[in-house]
Simulated scan of single mutants.
Amino acid sequence: MAKSVSLGTSRRFATITAAKQNFAPMLERNDLKQPFSGDDLADITALYRDYCARTNWPLPAAPASFFPIYERDQGYTTRCFGVAFTDGSAGRFSLDKALRAVAV
């Protein structure tokens, strides 16, 4: 049975694939390092908070903004979500991992 994704913003997706089809274009719409705003920001924030809660991921501080960045490692480069925290630190998170973690 397919797992669904529900966000604290009252957005609901019947499947992880449907959720990914909503979030993935956001990474292409915004220029690199340009913060998201409006409904996009609300949905990304809700996804990130749920993801961190489900995985017990410790946050250094409250998230202040989200933006597209490139993640680079040996053999690949991909766009992912960057996060800036109120304490000035920054991080990133994988859309695929976040969606799998919050799906029920």
Rank of each mutant, 00 (worst) to 15 (best):
S65Y: 11
A61I: 11
A90W: 07
D96W: 00
T55F: 10
K3A: 13
G38L: 06
N56C: 02
D43K: 06
A2Y: 11
D40W: 04
R11I: 04
F81R: 03
F93D: 04
L32I: 10
N56I: 08
F67P: 14
P63C: 13
A42V: 09
P25F: 10
N56P: 03
E28P: 08
L99Y: 01
A103E: 07
A46P: 11
T78F: 08
Q74E: 11
A64K: 15
C80K: 11
K97N: 12
N22G: 05
M1D: 08
D50I: 09
Y76P: 15
K20G: 04
V102E: 04
G8Q: 07
S89N: 11
T45V: 07
I69E: 02
S4Y: 07
G75N: 14
E28I: 08
A103G: 06
M1Q: 08
S89D: 05
N30G: 10
A19R: 04
A90L: 01
R100Q: 10
G91A: 01
Q21A: 02
D96E: 13
F23S: 00
A24E: 14
A2Q: 11
P68Q: 03
T9A: 05
A62K: 15
R29V: 13
Q34E: 12
S6K: 11
S94D: 00
R79G: 00
P63H: 14
D73P: 09
D43I: 09
T9F: 05
R79Y: 01
C80D: 05
K3M: 12
A103V: 01
R11W: 06
V104K: 06
T45Q: 10
A18P: 03
C52T: 15
L7A: 05
Q21D: 13
L47C: 10
C52F: 02
R11A: 13
F85W: 12
A14Q: 06
R54Y: 12
L32P: 03
D43A: 13
R11Y: 09
W57E: 05
V104L: 06
F93S: 12
D73M: 14
S6H: 11
Q21Y: 00
G88F: 04
L7M: 03
T9H: 10
M1W: 08
R29I: 09
D40C: 04
T78R: 15
S89C: 09
S4G: 10
W57M: 13
C52H: 01
F13P: 05
F81S: 04
F81A: 09
S65F: 11
R72S: 15
L41P: 07
S65E: 15
T77W: 09
S10Q: 10
C80A: 15
T86L: 11
D50P: 04
K3F: 08
V83L: 03
P60L: 12
R12F: 08
C80Y: 01
A101C: 07
A19G: 10
T77K: 14
E71W: 15
T17N: 09
R54I: 02
P63R: 07
S4P: 05
F13E: 00
A90N: 12
P25R: 02
R92S: 14
D31Y: 10
T86E: 14
R54H: 14
G88D: 02
G88P: 00
S37F: 06
V83Y: 02
R29A: 15
A64D: 15
G82K: 02
D96I: 00
C80I: 00
L59A: 12
A61R: 12
D39W: 04
R72L: 15
Q34P: 06
L7G: 02
A98T: 05
I16C: 01
